[in-house]
Design a protein around this nucleic acid. Structure first.
Ligand code: NAD
Ligand code: NAD
Lengths: 209, 209
DNA sequence: GTGGGCTTGTGAATGATTTCACAAGTTACA
DNA sequence: TGTAACTTGTGAAATCATTCACAAGCCCAC
């Protein structure tokens, strides 16, 4: 398959949200214009995005809400369950552990790890925090595929490498640290400080333009 | 000034991190190649990014770490203090309130709001959570410029509008909700569910490519 | 002060993404 | 069946972002 731009994948994920909302509202079909209106884009963009994966619309009518939802879910890999571990049971790690939104999307938390004695043994949403030393040993049993990494920046690189050795192929990193991803492992970043700085850039330079 | 791409601003913010790290390591100058090596980019990209704002390097030598830091900080609007409120003192809101990283960068939390009686009156890092009804009334005194919005998705749009009326010009939204930004207000999103879905897309389609 | 070695700054070229524009297909309805 | 009103799917054009490539400038050693 031809390479798909990240911007396209990001929009697909948004379209899926709008489709689910439309389904809740009882709609059976939706046009590219409707989808574009809900996100901040154009109908041509929506059609182009979808066209990379085939053609699932009906001319004159639009897209079937349920069929398109199913297809996008399939493209994004959401038809299956993903086994997720959280590394770092601090403030962010605990919030992630207790967040219902992930479970609803098929991300199942199978383990939580920390290094601090005060955190080990604590139960978060039914899962007991374990010592980070057990990460590799537990992997055979838990078969984790994705890690949410919420440790201090100085610990991040080491844990990415350990996670990779434990068979984890995807990492969502919350630490503001540059990370070298081992081969075959996809690392993405949620960097709140960066977003805040982009915001203050925009506010500072709003008048100029 | 010519319009600057968001990707450029995002990289500037990263360069600033690397510069601060280099300063801690005692370096006085740094070349575009060094900066590129620390982030995942090329030296031409670094020079092009900086060239939009002027020329601060010395041929043959590179950039002065302290001068370039100062200049980027100025571009991003980090030379001043920003007055920030947190709306929604739940799990994410509380984590944000207690995070030291923001204060270190000049983002000062001046107020925290919630609607739940159980949360109102709680003290987070020295700031008492107040009733969200007071948001507008407090604004004259607190003069907030940025809001971190950590409420359920259904409440997000209303609060963006109220924040705008209270004089807030920039909003960092954590709720997975599409939001219509009032004129003159910049809204950015930190969408963890979206990032996770991009990750599972990458894992699902890793072999093909 | 001269020359060798580095590094910047920037037009021009390339590559990627978005927008345009329209033929072709579908529905609704008389 | 005919036609009016829509909407998709997609090449082509336009726009935007990155990479190339090199002249120009500076440092330093001698
Ligand atoms: N609002 C926020 O809290 C916020 C915002 C932006 C970024 N971040 C980043 O997210 C990360 C986590 O932040 P936090 O606020 O949850 O910090 P925290 O200190 O509350 O949590 C970090 C946890 O990681 C654990 N840890 C440390 N080393 C470990 C190791 N080797 N193995 C396993 N666990 C280990 C600590 O014991 C601690 O419980 C940090 O990198 C921080 O910079 C946090
Ligand atoms: N790990 C996470 O917790 C996580 C991950 C991704 C996204 N999010 C999103 O972040 C947002 C907050 O998540 P959370 O986990 O902190 O939820 P939470 O339920 O712990 O906190 C939400 C808080 O907002 C308050 N609130 C509700 N309506 C309000 C109003 N009108 N004014 C002021 N406060 C109001 C509630 O009382 C509650 O304290 C949600 O939109 C959630 O979808 C959370």
């Amino acid at each position: 398959m031809k390479h798909i731009a990240e911007s396209t994948v990001r929009r697909l994920s948004l379209y899926l949200r709008f489709l689910e909302q439309s389904r809740r509202e009882g709609k059976d079909t939706i046009s590219s214009g409707d989808l574009a209106g809900l996100g901040g884009t154009t109908s041509a963009q929506v059609r182009k995005d979808l066209s990379f994966f085939g053609s699932f619309g009906t001319r004159g009518l639009g897209y079937s809400v349920s069929a398109l939802s199913r297809r996008i879910r399939e493209i994004l890999g959401l038809e299956r369950e993903w086994r997720v571990v959280i590394i770092g049971a601090g403030k962010i790690g605990a919030a992630l552990a207790q967040y219902r939104g992930f479970a609803d999307r098929g991300y199942r938390i199978v383990g939580i790890y920390d290094v601090a004695p005060a955190r080990i043994g604590v139960s978060l949403d039914g899962i007991t925090v374990r010592d980070q030393k057990e990460l590799e040993g537990d992997a055979a049993r838990l078969k984790p595929e994705i890690a949410l990494l919420a440790v201090p920046p100085t610990a991040a690189q080491t844990l990415v490498e350990r996670a990779a050795k434990a068979g984890i192929r995807g990492i969502l990193n919350f630490a503001p640290a540059q990370i070298h991803a081992p081969a075959g492992v996809e690392v993405r970043h949620v960097d709140m400080a960066l977003e805040l700085e982009i915001l203050s850039y925009a506010l500072t330079n709003a008048r100029k333009k």
